[in-house]
Design a protein around this nucleic acid. Structure first.
Lengths: 343, 343
DNA sequence: TTGTACGCGTTATCAT
DNA sequence: ATGATAACGCGTACAA
């Protein structure tokens, strides 16, 4: 087994000092060409690579960034992660991922674990529980230590830091308007429990759109479903009892399940009922009918978050600049597919 | 801003030596209760936490594991990752994820980047390009350095290390038999280009099943599609020209797209054509008809991989044990849904 | 041109 | 009971 070689080994072997080796490998002017050749040849031969940990300790920079997401299996978070990873990698950073599993405690534990030197900064989306509890002390501690933090998608006003979001309310408004323009009058909303910030914003946009177009907001047309649910009984009841000609869903799973239900109940999609969802994942693309949906452009979000973070990480600390936080809004795009009719 | 506090700060502040502080915080017997109380109180007050990097340097253990996957957006890899992350986290490890993007070069770069001290071991699935080129020197180098490596799903016989796979050929065989048992005689196979090891194995299983049941293997019923393709022309041609009553697909996307095409061409699914896919993702669950599919149990794979890796990482180095590599086979399960008829 | 010494933060060993 | 020293691997200011 060829163990990793260090400067010390090379120095001992070549009978020079460690610092000579170090300088020689950096092609320093102070070292004679002879020595440099000798050292470099030896280093190449034994495939010397500096030890990242030692460099991290010395520079107080790990070149790692920590990403904490509620769930990695969700398509949206996955695409954001891909954006982060791509940009970070291009900049020479590695990404440590922790999954909070929507749990406050896990979020806190993961943050503390990483905050003790493992990473140069955080990118995260808050867990559902954190948002519900409205407890952000773990974030505050981290930022107070001077560790850069970028929040995306699930953010909070309580913390001063860079943020990357989509304009959820505007996106929902546009999606609703899309339905209105195609002649729909009784538009339902399928949403989650409202402790998710984003759901609340999407609901607001939905209401705004209706009001702006002189349509009544009918509370009975708003169906609130658990974040993860198995059986369809409450949706089924809704379908039976309510009268509607379109549905805005806050995610693609809700949408696809609803479409399926509608079809089973003999409604034609999109003629009898049109559907618009959020999240442009595989489901939207490949279900039939395919789903008109709001593309959140996760990859762009991820890239923007990584850009913001790395620029902060690499900035010389400066009280003024550091407080100059920005919130980037990533544009959404409504992708037209088969679940809506053209106006 | 409250900067991170170190042993040195505490020592200076309390006017004791660094080693006294270190011992006091570890509740060492050699330190007087007085001093311990004093030090511990101070540490708690200023929220002292040891610096991970320094500990890593000292222990030559990072408590990080490196995961390299071809693509994080794929549902299967995502679930495997979740299994890894869960187990690793429970064991106090963090996970650094790199995406090779199916590229040999990126795989190599990422490995080298992490191999220089950033991680204690690797878990990875080979990129398509790596499998095509049959070049595994980067893996060999890592293992020769004594860094534990676990391969999953996309593995190779060229490298001696722990592996976690599903029995792809057996799973394909069982899936095919499921179709045969329900009376299907002309069973097509939709697969990818064969440089993907797993596709090759699934094809083998498909052939075995047919032969075992006395059915002819008709080469014209095997459709090879690019890994990622946009337009459906070749599938369409296949549907028009070939006569078949069932299709085995090597992934769920192929399956769902094929089902859709079949329906558009007026075939009833599952009555006229039955479908079985691989990967139990959202698509399989929520498409209509929902897809009968081989569940690869990614989370179990991930957990097994993490178990194997961490046990090796934490094992005292011992020539005998280290060479005692195992290959774990994760059982698959055929999930019956609507795209097949009951026998 | 080369080498010595120090520091990054921690721990373990040895001395006082 | 406490402290000094060395070591992990590297880089660099300074001395020779």
């Amino acid at each position: 087994m060829k163990r990793k070689i260090t400067l010390k080994h090379i120095a001992r072997e070549l009978d020079v000092s460690i610092s000579t080796v170090s300088k020689a490998l950096k092609n320093s002017e102070e070292i004679s060409q002879d020595t440099k050749d000798k050292v470099q040849a030896f280093a190449r031969l034994y495939n010397y690579k500096p030890n990242n940990i030692a460099i991290s300790l010395k520079n107080k920079r790990t070149k790692n960034i920590g990403v904490i997401v509620p769930d990695i299996v969700h398509h949206f978070f996955t695409t954001v992660f891909r954006g982060i990873e791509k940009y970070a990698n291009a900049k020479g950073y590695n990404v440590i991922v922790c999954v909070s599993d929507e749990s406050f405690d896990k979020e806190v534990i993961n943050m503390e674990m990483l905050a003790n030197g493992s990473i140069d900064g955080f990118i995260m989306a808050l867990s559902a529980e954190t948002q519900r509890r409205n407890d952000f002390n773990h974030l505050r501690e981290v930022t107070e230590q001077g560790i850069p933090l970028v929040l995306f998608d699930r953010v909070t006003d309580e913390i001063r830091c860079d943020k990357v979001i989509i304009d959820d309310s505007r996106a929902a408004m546009e999606a609703t308007e899309r339905l209105i323009r195609s002649g729909r009058k009784r538009i339902a909303l399928f949403t989650t429990e409202t402790y998710l910030n984003v759901s609340a914003k999407r609901e607001a946009g939905y209401r705004q759109a209706l009001e702006a177009h002189g349509l009544p907001v009918l509370e009975e047309l708003i169906l609130r479903l658990p974040y993860q649910f198995e059986e369809e009984s409450s949706s089924l009841r809704f379908f039976r009892e309510q009268d509607f000609d379109a549905v805005l869903c806050v995610n693609e799973i809700f949408a696809v399940r609803a479409i399926r239900l509608a079809q089973q109940l003999g409604r034609r999609v999109p003629q009898d009922v049109s559907f618009v969802g959020f999240t442009d994942g595989l489901l939207s693309r490949y279900s039939s009918p395919s789903l008109t949906t709001v593309d959140q452009q996760g990859e762009l979000m991820g890239q923007a978050a990584a850009e913001l973070l790395i620029s902060k990480v690499e900035m010389e600390y400066d009280e003024n600049d550091a407080r100059n936080y920005q919130t980037r809004i990533i544009p959404t795009a409504l992708i037209e597919r088969e679940s809506t009719v053209l106006s």
